[in-house]
Design a protein around this nucleic acid. Structure first.
Length: 225
DNA sequence: GCGACAG
DNA sequence: ATCTTGTCGC
């Protein structure tokens, strides 16, 4: 766990935005051409209004079979504000990660650099770990897609207002709305896309994040019952 | 000032 | 994200 950028998570929106602008310059982007063995999907649910349940699902990259899982229950201290998602879900996620063994790659439910200030949850959390992180979002927050990919496996670029490549809209099922892939930290948009494509299963949401979501919902219910 | 707006 | 059953469509 890289403690170099640790900071408080409870702060006012203006302070949080200020911190994001300062942290975005710490992000790095490099190709990832090797073959990851273990990857993990991360998702968060809310069993109670102010309690976040973060789940880490570890799976084999080549078979997409689940190997193990870890979770954490944490009280939330900030409301959900578009662009500041990491401040709400970050604490629970980092705690769950501290209980989980190291893997080669992390997939998040949300964006990486396809964000107003270039530092979505996948990028922000990515500063605390030493492995590459990828954002897999279900809807667009920032930027524009060049065209809508409608055939499974196809993709189109997500561009910033200034024309910078932020990531890709990836069609994971023919004629179904795409998911939005963007690099978090320590990886390029191209590599993030290539690796994400390999985690596509039979559904719209790629397996790592999909399995994490299923488990986060299941654990939430087991908690009440 | 008017929209847009991850989970 | 969360509160919730059935139902339309590929």
């Amino acid at each position: 766990m890289n403690i170099e950028y640790i900071h408080s998570w409870s702060m006012e929106p203006v302070q949080a935005i200020d911190l994001q602008k300062k942290l975005r310059d710490k992000l790095t982007f490099e190709d990832y051409s090797r073959e990851p063995r273990l990857v993990a999907g991360i998702d968060v649910s809310f069993p109670f209004r102010e309690i976040a349940l973060a789940v880490i699902v570890i799976m084999e990259f080549n078979s997409l079979s689940i190997v193990d899982h870890f979770f954490s229950l944490k009280k939330v201290e900030t409301p959900y504000i578009p662009g500041l998602l990491s401040f709400r879900e970050g604490p629970a996620i980092l705690d769950a990660l501290s209980r989980s063994p190291e893997v080669d790659l992390l997939f998040f439910d949300g964006h990486g650099i396809a964000h107003p200030r270039g530092i979505g949850i996948a990028s922000h959390i990515g500063l605390f770990v030493e492995i590459p992180t990828i954002g897999v979002a279900k809807s667009l927050l920032y930027g524009k897609v060049e065209s809508l990919p409608r055939e499974k496996g196809q993709s189109s670029r997500i561009l910033s207002p200034g024309g910078r490549l932020l990531g890709y809209a990836l069609c994971t099922r023919t004629s179904v709305k795409p998911v939005f892939i963007s690099p978090g930290n320590r990886i390029t948009a191209e590599s993030a896309l290539r690796l994400s494509i390999r985690t596509i299963g039979k559904y719209r949401i790629p397996e790592p994040t999909r399995q994490a979501h299923i488990l986060t919902q299941r654990l939430k219910n087991q908690l009440v019952l």
